[in-house]
Design a protein around this nucleic acid. Structure first.
Lengths: 130, 130
DNA sequence: TATATAATAGTAATAGTTATTATTATTATT
DNA sequence: AATAATAATAATAACTATTACTATTATATA
């Protein structure tokens, strides 16, 4: 009865899976990764719980890469680099989005209330450009 | 025999449709808009030609909004504002992405070659926030 | 333990997009 | 202009990521 987070072994596992990698995985990756240790896991459960995490702000969407939505367990706003060849997504730390955000407020369309910003750099990752 | 652009009434109409609006439309909108004046037009043709435009750089993708990919006929890089409620996409002119781009080069992952940047602001548009 | 509530698996359904193929239009060549 | 080669298209089927649905199972509460 102690007020706290909602429980469910599977839900927790899904959140931890997303938080414990820097791959910015999609739902399928989470499913494939957890399935061996949690045989009774369905893809629908992964999708449903990720939706919950998004709503509760425990996970954030990086956007759609190659037709698949990718997620990030690090919720502080920061830019990402997406490889156009292999689809890898990399964090770009150390660059604060907030300043950019402020800067943009001046130019925002009349009456538009900005909630958050996403900055994505597209190109070729180290592995794919060498 | 004069070297010039490739032709096709439908192809041209599709490109002009995208270029002549600020709605940042998706494929379905282009189809719905042109269908009355070009009854013999199929959705597949719209998709196929948009893919060509993307490859040739005549059109640029704004990203996926509400599960649908949206396009822009203005190809100079500039940020966009996406309304989380109605899905409208608005240009944000007057803010140069290039500076931001440069700024980011320092922080980009080792070996990552940046080709272009996309900055999107999410929030509520004027109509939806009032 | 009994009862109410929430979470899940499995499956079906949906929607955007891409591929296929037969046909039609366009371009090049004679 | 007539014919041959090429490109573009419509119509349809296929595909994929995602969501909805439903019967079942697990969890929490009394």
């Amino acid at each position: 009865m102690m007020p706290g987070k909602k429980h469910s072994k599977k839900r927790d596992a899904i959140l931890r899976a997303i938080q414990s990698t820097q791959l910015h995985p999609g739902a399928q990756w989470v499913y494939d990764t957890l399935k061996p240790e949690i045989p009774g896991l369905s893809l629908g459960t992964v999708y449903r719980n990720i939706s919950l995490f998004l709503k509760e702000g425990e996970v954030v969407s990086v956007g759609v890469v190659g037709g698949e939505e990718r997620f990030d367990g690090r919720v502080e706003p920061h830019p990402h680099a997406v490889c156009l060849r292999c689809g890898s997504v990399t964090d770009i730390p150390g660059i604060d989005d907030a300043a950019r955000n402020l800067l943009a407020h001046g130019g925002a369309p009349k009456g538009f209330r900005i909630d958050y910003t996403k900055t994505v750099f597209y190109g070729l990752c180290g592995a794919c450009s060498s």
